[in-house]
Design a protein around this nucleic acid. Structure first.
Length: 963
RNA sequence: GGGCGUAUAGCUCAGUGGUAGAGCACUUCGUUGACAUCGAAGGGGUCGGGAGUUCAACUCUCUCUACGCCCA
C-alpha cells in the first residue's frame, strides 16, 4: 500500500473509530493491570457537541489514551444526564409547536413522551463525541435515570434523610415563575438591569407623628407591588429620626393593613429615608427581618401564585382589582406594580423624584432611575420571585466539611492550585441546597405524606385556607414517610397509623377520600407521594460511584473508585464537582477522585463568550469537517495552558492540520525508502552518530512528554511532540540520513532504516493520544510491507527506549547542524545561490574535528553543500569565514564578491559576541557576584566568557584577513 | 464590597532568579522525488507603570493602572 500524497482525515476517521469500538478496544480486558479511571461529565441528553465539550473531552481522551498505552486498565465511563429542566423544556416546546401543552396529558403520559423523545433524538452528542475520536467505554453507557442510577438515587435520598441530612423546610426559595419550579441558588444569575426606585408615604396610624411633626414615614422601594403583602416597616435601631415611633403602627393606604414599625439593623440610615418596607414573604432580606420581628414562616403573607400573578393574601386585604394581575408589566400589559404606583399617586402617597434636565429646568418623575441587581433563572430567563414554599433541602454545610478537609489534606489535588481558594470559599459559606423541583421529568422524590395523628388517634386533616394555587403537596402538619419503595413505605405507614393504607394521587385526593369515606377513618389512612422530582445535579453527583454499580459492591466499584482524575470546566465546579466530592465522601467514605483538573472556557476569536444569541458560536463538527478531528484535538491540547481561557483561532487549527500532513509526508518518505515498522520496543543498536543522536533525542522527548502529561500540562506535551517531529525528525534527521540511505555502505543503511523506523514508531505512539486517527492509520500502513502489526496502536505500548543519552553523538550532530546553518546564513547574506557547492578550509582544527568531518562527509556535502574540506590555508582571494566552536571555516568564493558585505556580516557577528563577552566580564568582575552567587552560576559564566572571548578573537582574526 | 485571574514580538500565547521563545502574520530566496498543507534565511520585544528584596528581577514582594471572571 502506498500512502496518498495528501492526508485526507475524512477518509480514515470513521473507519478507525468503528474498528476500535467494534473490537472492544476502548476497554481492553486488563483485569490484572493497574486501574485508571475517569468519568466523563455526562452531557445533557438534549445537547449537541459544542466547542467546550470538544475541549473537555479531548483532554480526557488524551489522558485515557496515554494511560491505556502505558498498559493500565483504563476505564473512561460515559453516559448522559437526563437534564431535568432542560429536557422537559425541549419536549414542552415541541408540544407547543403542535398546539399542545404538558397539562393536556397525565404525568405518566408526559413522562412516557419524554422517554420516547429520548430514545429517538436524545444523545445526538454521543455520535459527535465519536467523531472527535473519544475512546469511552460505550459498552457500558449509562444514563442518570437508568435502573442502576435510580437505585443509587433512592438509597442516597433515604440514607441522607435518615441521617438528618435531608429535611423538609418552609422558607423562601428562588421560584422561577416561567418554569413554575423552585431552583437552587446556583441556578440564579444576577444581572444589573435598569429599574426604578419609588418613594412613598406610609401614613402613621392613631394620630402618631414623627418628632418633626410629619404624619407619615417615607419608604422607598424598587418593588412597589409587594406592598400588598407588607408586614412591617423597619428603621435602624439607632436612627434618631424614628426613635419615637418604633413599635407604633402604619396603616398601609392600599390594603388598609396595619403593621408595626420595627427596629432592625437591616435598615440603612444612609439609604433613602432610612426606613424600609418589609415584605417577608417576597424578599430574602425581609424574610430575615420578619423572623427577627417575630413572624413564623407560616405567618408570612403571600400575595403571588406560581406564575407570579397576584392572589389573595391570608388576611384577605388585597383589593379585588389586583387579583390576577401579573406582578409587573408583561407583554405590554400593566401589572400590579403599575397599578400600585397609580393608586398610591392618586392617594397622594407618591413622593415624586425631582431632577433637572439639560436646560436646568426641574422635572418631576414618579420614580428615580436606578440600576438594580436583578436575579434571573438561568433556564427560564425570567426574574426570580422569592416565594415561601415547602421544599426539600440537603444539609450542604454538614456534607461540605469533609470535602473541605479532603482538599486541605491533599486527598484531592486541585489543578491548577489557584482554584483551591474558590473551593474553600464556596464550601465554607455554603447554604442549604434546595433539591426539590416542581417538574415531571426526573427522579421522583421517594417521600410520601399522610395526615398527622391526633392524640386521640384521629387523623388531623389540615386544609390550607389561603390560596388553592399554591403548592399544597403537603403541609408542615403532615406526616412524612421516606422510603426506597412504596411497599416499604406502606409497611411503615401501617405501623404508624395502625390502619390499612390507601395510596392516593395527591393531597387533594386524600382530603376528598376522608370526606367521602367518613366510615373508614378509623380503619384506613390515605397517603400520597410527593409530586416533586430531584434536582438534576442530585443524581449526577453520584456519577463517580453510581456508574460503577453502587450500591452493589461490584468488582468495578472496588477497582475504579476513587477515580484517578476528573476533568471539568470551572463553570460546573459548584454544580457538579463540589457535590460529587460531598456525596462521594459521604457514601463511599473516600474521595471521588484523586485529582481535579479545571480548564477554562473556549472563547470566540475576539475573546467574547460564545453564545447562540450573539451568533458567534463555532461548531466543532465544522472544524472537524474542514481540518480533521486530529487537528482540532491537537489545537485544544496545544492551547490548554493552566488557568487561562482559550481563544478560538482557525489559523492555528489549520496549522495543526499542516502538521498532520507533514507527518504523513515524512511517513511517505520512509515508506519509499524501505523504512518500516520497528520490531523492537527498545531502541535499536546504532553506530552512526546521527542515529545515536536521534535515539537520544527520542529519549529526552519522551521524558519531557511524560513529565508534561503527568503535570497535566497539555500545551507543553503537545508542543514537545510537535517540535520533535517537525524540527528534529523531519527537518534534520531525515535530511541527514538521505545520503546514508542512498550511499554504498549497506550496513550503515540497514542500521539507519532500523533506527528511522523505530523513531517513526515512537513518534506515532507518543502522538497517538493527541492525534489518534492519523497515527493509527500510519501505524498500520508502515507495517503493511512486513506483514502488518500484531495489534492496533490504540493498545500498543508506550515507548521504553532504554537508551542512554549519548553526549558525544549529541555534540557531533549539534556541531553539524550549526555548521550547516551558519553556511546557509552566510550564503544568503552574501547573495550566493543556496545550491552552490563549496570547499571549506579549516583553521585551528584538531584531530577530533578531522575525525568528525570525515564521519560527516556525505551529510556535509549533501545537506550542507560543503563538498570538500582542506586543512591547508585558503588560497588568496575573496572568502566567507565561519566560526564554530574552536575552529574557523574559510570558504573561498568564486568570482567577484562583495568584500564589504562579508566585512559587515563578520562585524555584526563580532558585535554580538563581544557584547555578550563584555556583559559576562562585567559580572565576573563584580566581587559580590563571585562571592555570593551559586558556584555553578559562576562556573558557567567563566566557561561562557572563555567561549565568547575565543569566538570574538577568531572573528577578529577573520576580519583582519579580509584586510 | 470580597475573592481570583490576566497584562511578554503586529496577532494568539508559552516561559525561567543568571539580559527572552513558539505558532500565525511579515520580508527575501527557493520545485535536485517525502512534503508549496513545503524548504532555507531573516526582521521584529527597554517582558503594563512605579517602588522594594537580591551579586543578579521578565521571573519574588508591595503598589498603581487596565481588562476579565466568580461570589455578595
Amino acid at each position: 500500500m502506498t500512502l496518498d500524497k495528501n492526508f485526507d482525515p475524512a477518509a480514515i476517521e470513521q473507519r478507525w473509530y468503528a474498528h476500535w469500538e467494534q473490537s472492544g478496544q476502548f476497554r481492553p480486558e486488563r483485569g490484572n493491570a493497574e486501574p485508571f479511571t475517569i468519568v466523563n461529565p455526562p452531557p445533557n441528553v438534549t445537547g449537541s457537541l459544542h466547542i467546550g465539550h470538544a475541549l473537555d473531552n479531548t483532554l480526557q481522551d488524551i489522558v485515557i489514551r496515554h494511560e491505556r498505552l502505558k498498559g493500565k486498565d483504563a476505564l473512561w465511563v460515559v453516559g448522559m444526564d437526563h437534564a431535568g429542566i432542560a429536557t422537559q423544556m425541549v419536549v414542552e416546546r415541541q408540544m407547543n409547536e403542535r398546539q399542545q401543552k404538558r397539562t393536556d396529558f397525565t404525568r405518566e403520559e408526559f413522562v412516557e413522551k419524554v422517554w420516547e423523545w429520548k430514545e429517538e433524538s436524545g444523545g445526538t452528542i454521543t455520535g459527535q463525541l465519536r467523531r472527535l475520536g473519544c475512546s469511552m467505554d460505550w459498552s457500558n453507557e449509562r444514563f442518570t435515570m437508568d435502573e442502576g442510577m435510580n437505585e443509587a438515587v433512592l438509597k442516597v435520598f433515604v440514607d441522607l434523610y435518615n441521617d438528618g441530612l435531608i429535611y423538609r423546610d418552609k422558607r423562601l426559595v428562588n421560584w422561577d415563575p416561567a418554569l413554575k419550579t423552585a431552583i437552587s441558588d446556583l441556578e440564579v444569575e444576577t444581572t444589573d438591569t435598569k429599574g426604578s426606585f419609588w418613594h412613598f408615604k406610609y401614613p402613621l396610624a392613631d394620630g402618631v407623628t414623627l418628632d418633626n411633626g410629619q404624619d407619615y414615614i417615607e419608604v422607598a422601594t424598587t418593588r412597589p407591588e409587594t406592598m400588598l403583602a407588607d408586614m412591617a416597616v423597619a428603621v435602624h435601631p439607632s436612627d434618631e429620626r424614628y426613635q419615637s415611633v418604633i413599635g407604633k403602627e402604619i396603616e398601609q393606604p392600599i390594603t388598609g393593613r396595619r403593621f408595626r414599625i420595627v427596629a432592625d439593623e437591616h435598615a440603612d440610615p444612609e439609604l433613602g429615608s432610612g426606613a424600609v418596607k418589609i415584605t417577608p414573604g417576597h424578599d430574602f432580606n425581609d424574610f430575615e427581618v420578619g423572623k427577627r420581628a417575630g413572624f413564623a414562616a407560616g405567618e408570612m403573607l403571600n400575595m403571588l401564585d406560581g406564575e407570579a400573578n397576584v392572589c389573595q393574601s391570608a388576611d384577605g386585604l388585597v383589593p379585588d382589582e389586583f387579583i390576577g394581575l401579573h406582578r409587573f408589566k408583561k407583554d405590554g400589559v400593566s401589572g400590579a406594580r403599575e397599578l400600585v404606583v397609580q393608586r398610591m399617586k392618586e392617594l397622594g402617597c407618591l413622593i415624586p423624584h425631582v431632577s433637572k434636565n439639560k436646560d436646568g429646568e426641574t422635572q418631576e418623575h414618579d420614580a428615580e432611575p436606578r440600576t438594580i441587581a436583578t436575579p434571573f433563572g438561568d433556564r427560564g430567563g425570567v426574574v426570580i420571585e422569592p416565594w415561601l414554599t415547602d421544599q426539600w433541602y440537603v444539609d450542604a454545610e454538614a456534607l461540605a466539611q469533609p470535602a473541605i478537609k479532603a482538599v486541605r489534606d491533599g486527598s484531592i489535588e486541585i489543578v491548577p492550585k489557584t482554584w483551591e481558594k474558590t473551593w474553600f470559599n464556596w464550601m465554607e459559606n455554603i447554604q442549604p441546597w434546595c433539591v426539590s423541583r416542581q417538574l415531571w421529568w426526573g427522579h421522583r422524590i421517594p417521600a410520601w405524606f399522610g395526615f398527622e395523628l391526633h392524640g386521640d388517634n384521629r387523623l388531623s386533616i389540615h386544609i390550607p385556607d389561603n390560596d388553592e394555587l399554591r403548592n399544597v403537596g403537603s403541609t408542615n402538619d403532615d406526616k412524612v414517610f421516606v422510603s426506597e419503595s412504596e411497599s416499604n413505605m406502606i409497611d411503615a405507614a401501617k405501623e404508624f397509623y395502625q390502619r390499612e393504607i390507601v395510596v392516593v394521587a395527591d393531597r387533594t385526593a386524600a382530603v376528598a377520600y376522608t370526606l367521602d369515606n367518613p366510615e373508614k377513618m378509623a380503619t384506613h389512612a390515605p397517603v400520597w407521594q410527593d409530586s416533586d422530582v430531584l434536582d438534576t445535579w442530585f443524581s449526577s453527583a453520584l456519577w463517580p460511584f453510581g456508574t460503577l454499580g453502587w450500591p452493589e459492591e461490584t468488582k468495578d466499584l472496588k477497582r475504579h473508585y476513587p477515580n484517578d482524575l476528573l476533568i471539568s470546566g470551572f463553570d460546573i465546579l459548584f454544580f457538579w464537582d463540589a457535590r460529587m466530592a460531598m456525596q462521594g465522601i459521604q457514601f463511599m467514605k473516600d474521595v471521588p477522585w484523586k485529582r481535579l483538573y479545571l480548564h477554562g472556557l473556549v472563547r470566540a476569536e475576539d475573546g467574547s463568550k460564545m453564545s447562540k444569541s450573539k451568533g458567534n458560536v463555532v461548531d466543532p463538527l465544522g472544524l472537524i469537517d474542514q481540518y480533521g478531528a486530529d487537528a482540532l484535538r491537537f489545537f485544544m491540547a496545544a492551547m490548554e495552558s493552566q488557568g487561562r481561557d482559550i481563544k478560538m483561532d482557525d489559523k492555528r487549527v489549520e496549522g495543526y492540520r499542516n502538521f498532520a500532513t507533514k507527518l504523513w509526508n515524512a511517513s511517505r518518505f520512509c515508506e519509499v525508502n524501505g523504512i518500516g515498522a520497528s520490531k523492537t520496543l527498545r531502541a535499536p543498536e546504532a553506530k552512526l552518530p546521527v542515529n545515536r543522536w536521534i535515539i537520544s533525542e527520542v529519549t529526552e522527548t519522551l521524558a519531557t512528554l511524560d513529565k508534561a502529561l503527568g503535570d497535566l500540562r497539555f500545551d507543553a506535551a503537545a508542543n514537545t511532540i510537535y517540535h520533535f517531529t517537525w524540527d528534529r525528525f523531519c527537518d534534520w534527521y531525515l535530511e541527514l540520513i538521505k545520503p546514508v540511505l542512498q550511499g554504498d555502505d549497506a550496513d550503515a543503511a540497514e542500521e539507519t532504516r532500523a533506527v528511522a523506523g523505530w523513531v517513526l514508531d515512537q513518534i506515532i505512539v507518543m502522538l497517538h493520544p493527541f492525534m489518534p486517527f492519523i497515527t493509527e492509520e500510519l501505524w498500520h500502513s508502515m507495517a503493511s510491507e512486513t506483514g502488518g502489526r500484531n495489534y492496533d496502536l490504540i493498545v500498543a505500548k508506550w515507548p521504553e527506549p532504554k537508551a542512554e543519552i549519548d553526549a558525544d553523538a549529541k555534540a557531533e550532530v549539534d556541531w553539524l547542524i550549526r555548521l550547516i546553518s551558519a553556511t546557509r546564513t552566510a550564503k544568503v547574506e552574501l547573495n550566493i545561490a543556496p545550491g552552490t557547492k563549496m570547499t571549506a578550509h579549516v583553521r585551528d582544527g584538531d584531530d577530533a574535528l578531522r575525525a568528525r568531518i570525515a564521519r560527516q562527509t556525505s551529510a556535509l556535502d549533501r545537506v550542507g553543500r560543503l563538498e570538500s574540506f582542506s586543512f591547508d590555508p585558503a588560497p588568496e582571494g575573496a572568502t566567507a569565514q565561519i566560526v564554530i566552536d574552536g575552529a574557523t571555516y574559510v570558504l573561498p568564493l568564486a568570482g567577484a564578491i562583495d568584500i564589504d558585505a562579508e566585512k559587515a556580516r563578520l562585524g555584526k557577528a563580532l558585535e554580538g559576541v563581544s557584547k555578550e563577552a563584555k556583559s559576562l566580564e562585567g559580572r565576573l568582575g563584580n566581587a559580590n557576584f563571585v562571592e555570593k552567587a551559586k558556584p555553578e552560576a559562576v562556573e558557567k559564566a567563566r566557561a561562557d566568557l572563555a567561549d565568547k572571548s575565543a569566538e570574538a578573537e577568531r572573528l577578529q582574526a577573520a576580519l583582519a584577513r579580509l584586510g
